[in-house]
Design a protein around this nucleic acid. Structure first.
Lengths: 242, 242
DNA sequence: AAAAGAGTGTGTAATAATTACACAAAGTAA
DNA sequence: TTACTTTGTGTAATTATTACACACTCTTTT
């Protein structure tokens, strides 16, 4: 950031007092927290406590603290709301329409996060917070519908290019679970044989030589994702195509 | 954004005074403005006027005004600095490390923009502003090196999936110019015959039945990008691959 | 114990996309 | 007229994608 046409060199003091005098805005962080349960992609929402939005649902968010990085704030919110740390988290973008918040100017920075809902540490304490099926999310408070859809699109894109989906699954998973996950995220059906062929040919799944238990049919083999191998071998060039 | 565990319903007045009381931060917009000239990808930078950064280069930016959307502010900066409006502009993300600005807490939202440097309206008035070859950009002021690299990567990704590159070219261009552009953005050499085959098979280029002038060799045919046709036919599904 | 049900595991043929690669033609400059 | 530079074009080999069917394993039902 820099002022228009200003040719003298500014001392640190001058810059500090300049920043003091800047117009300032409230800055919040909103998190779109995805989970995967019963073969459905879910998102964690909280009921709005504002009259204007009479009990409509909204994203989980909070204000940025004065001495907190943006990412830190997002992790703090996740920790507060789920009890989990060390989650997958990615910033999507800032949303800053002047009138997006009825209480005044509030710019928000949106993140999405992926959590494994079977994690034994997961605790959703607040009874105003619920998991919602992504296909049923509508009419969110504020501009949260827009933020949510932007984040979901980002997830759909990313999951096809990067191995993030595994963050939504238990450590050991069957190929059927993996396929269900992709189908739920992308909202489409995939061919089972081609799906398997694709993942086997990428060669990042470790066959654990174990099988599922408690399924009412022939059990499938269990796999793990090999992050190390992925980091060594991942693609750089995808090709021009639109 | 929403408070933690608060069960009563808030009136508009209550929300307004709540927002009043929020911690606030200075918010700036920084633009990575790309241009294409002499077969090189360029970026527009301004000399920092801060002592701490003794004449290092920085991105073009400014503060967000109180009644301005983020996108509006970015357009305003572009207009101020280049004289152009109606440019390609995309937000990348927010950067908000606590200590990123020596003068105090300033969160910035980064955009990148593509401009056609031959546009007759382009005016770079401030003599502290210069075009820099992207391969030579280093040691920028603030955290601008990081912002710049993030934006360049975003451009590299996007240009392979969306037809943005044309914003950097004149309205009529030869395939050689288009290929030079892609090579400059991606920083790699491409096979000429395969490049042509790819673009022809996508079938969004209109043959203008004109040829280049003023080239010291056999002139190439001129083309235009057909945005309408693209909008009708663009791909939705790219496929899982990483 | 046998049969029905449900999902796993596997391969191939057809099509489409990508890659590597060479030569004649059209213009300019000397 | 010759040398130089860049355009325009096609094919063969490889790789990736798609569509698609049947035998096997385990559970549940009768």
């Amino acid at each position: 950031m820099k002022e228009l046409s200003n040719n003298h060199v500014k001392s640190l003091k001058a810059v500090q007092s300049e920043v003091q005098s800047y117009n300032k805005v409230a800055l919040s962080i909103d998190c779109v927290i995805f989970g995967f349960e019963e073969n459905k992609l879910k998102v964690l929402l909280i009921r709005s406590d504002m009259k204007k939005f009479h009990s409509r649902w909204s994203l989980l968010g909070d204000l940025l603290n004065p001495n907190e990085d943006l990412d830190e704030a997002a992790y703090r919110i996740l920790k507060q709301r789920t009890g989990l740390d060390d989650l997958f988290l990615e910033q999507v973008q800032a949303f800053g329409k002047v009138s997006r918040h009825p209480g005044g100017r509030v710019v928000t920075v949106a993140y999405y996060s992926l959590i494994n809902v079977l994690n034994h540490k997961l605790r959703i304490l607040d009874n105003e917070i619920h998991w919602h099926d992504v296909t049923a999310v509508k009419d969110l408070a504020f501009d949260h519908q827009n933020i949510y859809e932007t984040c979901l699109k980002r997830l759909q894109k990313r999951v096809q290019e990067h191995p993030l989906g595994f963050s939504l699954l238990p450590n050991k998973f069957s190929l059927r679970e993996l396929q269900n996950l992709y189908e739920a995220i992308l909202g489409i059906k995939l061919d089972r044989r081609n799906f398997r062929k694709k993942f086997f040919s990428m060669d990042f799944l470790v066959d654990l030589e174990e099988i599922e238990t408690d399924v009412p049919h022939r059990p499938g083999k269990l796999y793990q994702f090999d992050y190390e191998k992925y980091e060594k071998n991942k693609k750089k060039w995808s090709g021009i195509d639109f």
